[in-house]
């Protein structure tokens, strides 16, 4: 079996969803003939036609708002936002409308829609292309916020997101689009969108990460194994709603917790996880909860992006600090 990249996995999930449900409509900038700037919609236009794979005008707020109307009108739009920094105009539509339609009409109208957008740094992209906005969306009630960390999880989580009835923001780490590859089947199996995934079991410390930080955490875990530290690695995957139980149970076992994300420290989703761990596993904690995150700076342009981005070495130092508490 040949390996599938994460961007190919996204394409496979989109094609699968469009095949099994004719209500699924893909829309966005350059998603048609061009197949998307990252090629996530490659081949869909030829296969499903211009009605269902729609190039929109350059209109991010429009993509968000029209998806809401489409969803309330009986379709299942999967919108692509071209680059991470272009997602912000949608916050109005997602916060004020998509996440509220079911509630404010007491179930009469719903918004089963998925907004896919690239996220994160590490590919030397231009300005405004390397953002990590997940915490902003995770603060919105009624929304699901998902960040996959591997081709298989991207495939399964995206399928579940599209099949579900809730509005979803699905953030795809650009670094993993081609940086992550594995053997996988296009078997139509989805994954739960309310669970964290324990990727590696360990005894001494719990590493909690999502997106492109998951491979870094796994790298640290492998390297620190040689130093005699047994690290458990959790891929949060779905930030909202959060499966705090899996994280808390892990920390109850290990007694130490290191949370990793690319987004800035202050107000980052790591703070929420730290609070949940403090509430749920306080008496098990052997060391202060550590956070390894982007800095509270503007995401640097490409020359400095690797200084900003957490990596296995920085995670390792946090593990050492936590392990210093015996």
């Amino acid at each position: 079996m040949s390996e599938t990249t994460m961007v190919q996995a996204v394409s496979l999930a989109l094609a699968r969803a469009m095949t099994e449900d004719e209500r699924v409509i893909v829309l966005g900038e350059d998603v048609g003939v061009d197949g998307g700037v990252f090629r996530a919609t490659d081949g869909l236009f030829t296969r499903f036609g211009a009605d269902r794979v729609r190039d929109t005008p350059l209109s991010e707020m429009g993509i968000g708002g029209i998806s809401i109307g489409l969803a309330a009108g009986g379709f299942k739009p999967v919108a692509e936002i071209q680059f991470s920094g272009f997602i912000f105009p949608l916050i109005d539509q997602i916060n004020n409308h998509a996440s509220r339609f079911r509630n404010r009409t007491r179930g009469r109208l719903q918004c089963p829609m998925v907004v896919r957008a690239p996220c994160g740094g590490g590919i030397h992209a231009p300005e405004h292309h390397s953002e990590s906005p997940e915490a902003m969306f995770a603060n919105i009630p009624g929304l699901r916020v998902i960040v996959p960390s591997s081709p298989r999880r991207a495939y399964g989580l995206l399928l579940a997101a599209i099949r579900g009835s809730d509005p979803v923001v699905f953030l795809e780490p650009t670094k993993l689009y081609r940086g992550a590859r594995e053997e996988m089947l296009d078997d139509g199996k989805d994954l739960p969108v309310d669970r964290c995934f324990v990727l590696r079991e360990g005894r001494d410390v719990t590493l909690v990460a999502w997106g492109a930080m998951v491979p870094e955490a796994l790298k640290t875990a492998a390297e620190w194994e040689a130093k005699g530290v047994s690290a458990e690695v959790i891929d949060v995957a779905t930030l909202k709603p959060l499966d705090a139980e899996t994280i808390i149970n892990s920390v109850k076992k290990t007694g130490r917790c290191v949370i990793v994300h690319e987004a800035p420290l202050t107000g980052g989703f790591g703070g929420e996880i730290a609070a949940r761990v403090a509430e749920g596993a306080f008496s098990s904690l052997l060391a202060p909860i550590e956070r390894v995150t982007g800095y509270d700076t503007i995401m640097p342009l490409l020359k400095l992006e690797n200084v900003y981005l957490p990596n296995a070495a920085r995670i390792g130092k946090a593990v050492d600090r936590a392990m210093a508490y015996a």
Partner: peptide
């Protein structure tokens, strides 16, 4: 649709549901 308080943001919903009707 229900009332829309954030002024003008519903014009896009109208376009979206019109697209659903057209499709």
């Amino acid at each position: 649709f229900p009332n829309c308080v954030p002024v003008g943001s519903h014009a896009l919903h109208a376009a979206g549901v019109a697209l659903a009707i057209k499709l």
